[in-house]
Amino acid sequence: DESNKPILLPNESQSFERSVQLLDQIPSYDTHKIAVLYVGEGQSNSELAILSNEHGSYRYTEFLTGLGRLIELKDCQPDKVYLGGLDVCGEDGQFTYCWHDDIMQAVFHIATLMPTKDVDKHRCDKKRHLGNDFVSIVYNDSGEDFKLGTIKGQFNFVHVIVTPLDYECNLVSLQCRKDMEGLVDTSVAKIVSDRNLPFVARQMALHANMASQVHHSRSNPTDIYPSKWIARLRHIKRLRQRICEEAAYSNPSLPLVHPPSHSKAPAQTPAEPTPGYEVGQRKRLISSVEDFTE
């Protein structure tokens, strides 16, 4: 099969070098950035008060330690540790928490760990991170309901609301924008112990962030949302095809390698009803078989 044979790379090609550099910018793992907010007593309706908090309760602090690993920003190499735009020179604080497994990295933009500057009256330095995160974990210690939209931002799609209760338990629920209701189930609340709260809140936030990324990708319907490693695979396959075309153009005697095509017509299947918005969006999480067989 010609399409699977190794090909020689061009010795000097600026377009090839640019493509390789672009490939280096696509990590081999999925990345997520999640905002974390603490809401104190009497702050449920005040964005400024929430963003001005420099610490929270003892249970909130224990919750943070379970979310991930504490890292010092100045020691991080952005090409190895995903920071979601946090500055490593102290502009966004000294520490944050991050978490990773074999296929993804997540960083938490924690408002109480970011510096509260006197010259920044409206807390814009914090909002440029927190307001651009799709998902926020809100530790609501106010005793009042927290409403979506209290923290203004164009991309605040989903809130994971943590409400501490007695007996070391917590109520965990989801809020989302109306255009996200087909992807996020907000109907079920959970009672979770303090011990298990970081794991549950983190998983709910990661799932909500993946759904938000799919939702946000609708602005470019021709580019369905893939995982990062599938995006790398697609980029490599496009690069291979372009090299083959350039080689055939410079030397017409060489065969032009095309991806294999299936001449056999697909079997006719009964027509199915058109899937609704929710089903269609969830299918976009699934990769096409052509990603692996071309």
Rank of each mutant, 00 (worst) to 15 (best):
H122G: 15
V188R: 05
K126N: 04
Q105G: 04
F95G: 05
Y58P: 09
A231S: 08
D223I: 07
Q25F: 05
D79V: 03
S136I: 05
D101N: 02
L254I: 09
V172W: 00
R195Y: 05
P260D: 15
N140R: 00
R240V: 12
H55N: 07
V20R: 07
S212L: 07
Q94Y: 15
D101C: 02
D179P: 04
V39P: 00
I7M: 08
P273Y: 07
L64H: 01
P259M: 13
I50S: 02
S3K: 12
P273M: 13
Y38T: 00
H55A: 08
A106N: 02
P10N: 15
G42V: 01
P198D: 00
S263D: 13
L8G: 10
I137M: 01
H207Q: 04
N53L: 01
F16E: 07
P259F: 11
E12M: 09
Y29N: 06
L86Q: 15
L233V: 05
V214S: 03
T150N: 03
G182L: 11
I161W: 00
T222N: 10
D87C: 05
P221R: 04
V214G: 02
A267I: 11
R69L: 06
C176R: 02
Q25I: 04
L239K: 04
S28I: 12
V135K: 00
K127Q: 10
L22G: 07
R240T: 13
H129V: 10
V88G: 12
M104D: 15
V200G: 00
K117W: 12
Y277H: 14
S193G: 04
H55V: 12
G42M: 03
D120M: 05
V184A: 03
T96N: 04
S288M: 08
Q77H: 14
D24T: 03
I243E: 10
P273Q: 08
S136F: 06
P164Q: 00
K283A: 14
K117Q: 08
D75L: 07
K237T: 14
I50N: 02
G90C: 07
P221G: 05
Y277D: 14
L23Q: 08
D125R: 15
L206S: 01
S217E: 08
L206H: 01
G143E: 03
L197G: 01
S288W: 05
H216R: 05
L51N: 03
V138M: 01
R202N: 01
G56V: 02
N53Q: 02
I71C: 12
D166Y: 01
L64T: 03
S253W: 07
T186E: 06
L73Y: 13
S187V: 03
C244Y: 09
G182Y: 10
E246I: 04
I191V: 08
V279F: 12
R284P: 13
R218M: 10
S15P: 11
V289L: 13
W229A: 12
H159K: 02
V279K: 14
M180P: 01
T65R: 15
R284N: 15
Y60M: 00
S19D: 15
G131F: 15
P266F: 09
D102R: 03
S288Q: 11
M180G: 02
K117T: 12
G90P: 12
D194Q: 01
Y60W: 02
I7H: 06
E72Q: 12
H215Y: 14
A231K: 14
S19N: 12
V119N: 12
A211F: 13
S3Q: 13
E47P: 04
F146L: 05
D185K: 03
R234K: 07
Y139H: 00
S46Q: 05
